[in-house]
């Protein structure tokens, strides 16, 4: 699997197939049983702890599904957090940077709110502002659209697209929201059970001849992934109950 610099790469697949795990592998939070992850020319899992933190600081930003804002800090301080931790900028410069970052996500006016006072969509936008605070080369989005109302969803789609173009960042979007993700990505990997089933540009995937990919993209209830979890037929299950009652 290759993720190209400066492009939006989407990783799609049903829930529980290891999409988030993949992001955690890239970020070095989990260790792979086999295989390697190379980011910016460095093998993530052979780095020492301090080198790994250095790599994260230089190259990665991550947007978590829940936003992962620090609940005891205000929106302003949340965005300031990475800047204060990693730079020696004077507070005045940090103030300007925060206002710019919050302006980019449209939440400059919400800077005094606490995370508990934000809606889910706003929390994700704040988290996005925080993730771009240090201008990373790559940003990873973990299910950015899940559980969002249509407006927030539209805002997030626009933000991811614009950020990628304006800042030239590499974006990795993990999602199972087919249409939104397809509309902004340059390349899509469809994975299932930890394996890449198909990959290609959004257009190419639309014309995929794999029945599984077709079912996934169209959201059909039945197909290669069966509607019923059980592999026994209903009749057999019912009869079994009757038999055991008699005996």
């Amino acid at each position: 699997m290759d993720i190209e610099r400066g492009k939006v790469t989407a990783i799609m697949g049903p829930s529980g197939t290891g999409k988030t795990t993949l992001l955690k592998l890239i970020g070095g939070q989990l260790k792979p049983d086999s295989g390697t992850v190379v980011v910016d020319g460095e093998n993530v899992h052979q780095l020492s702890l301090s080198a790994l933190y250095d790599l994260r600081r230089r190259t990665m930003g991550m947007l978590f599904q829940s936003g992962a804002l620090l609940t005891d800090l205000s929106v302003y301080d949340n965005v300031a957090f990475p800047l204060r931790e990693h730079t020696a900028l004077p507070e005045e410069a940090i103030h300007h940077l925060i206002l710019l970052k919050l302006e980019a996500v449209g939440l400059r006016g919400a800077r005094h709110l606490m995370p508990a006072e934000l809606s889910g969509g706003m929390a994700r936008r704040v988290a996005l502002a925080r993730a771009i605070a240090l201008d990373p080369q790559m940003i990873m989005f973990d299910e950015p659209f899940t559980g969002q109302d249509p407006i927030s969803m539209g805002v997030l789609v626009k933000l991811i697209h614009d950020m990628n173009h304006a800042l030239g960042m590499t974006s990795v979007v993990v999602s199972h929201d087919v249409n939104e993700t397809a509309s902004i990505s340059d390349y899509i990997y469809v994975i299932s059970d930890g394996k890449v089933v198909q990959s290609g540009t959004p257009e190419a995937l639309q014309h995929s001849d794999s029945a599984w990919v077709k079912q996934f993209l169209d959201g059909d209830a039945d197909g290669p992934v069966p509607f019923h979890y059980s592999n026994k037929s209903l009749m057999d299950d019912l009869m079994e109950g009757i038999k055991s009652n008699r005996s």
Binding site: K24, G27, Q29, Y53, D54, R56, R57, M60, G61, M62, F64, Q65, S66, A68, L69, L70, T71, F81, P82, E85, H86, A127, R130, L134
Partner: peptide, 17 residues
């Protein structure tokens, strides 16, 4: 609670141990 709301993971990814 910080762990379950991914605050600890988030901090790690911001390169703060």
């Amino acid at each position: 609670l910080m762990k379950s709301t991914e605050q600890l993971s988030g901090m790690e990814m911001m390169a703060v141990n």
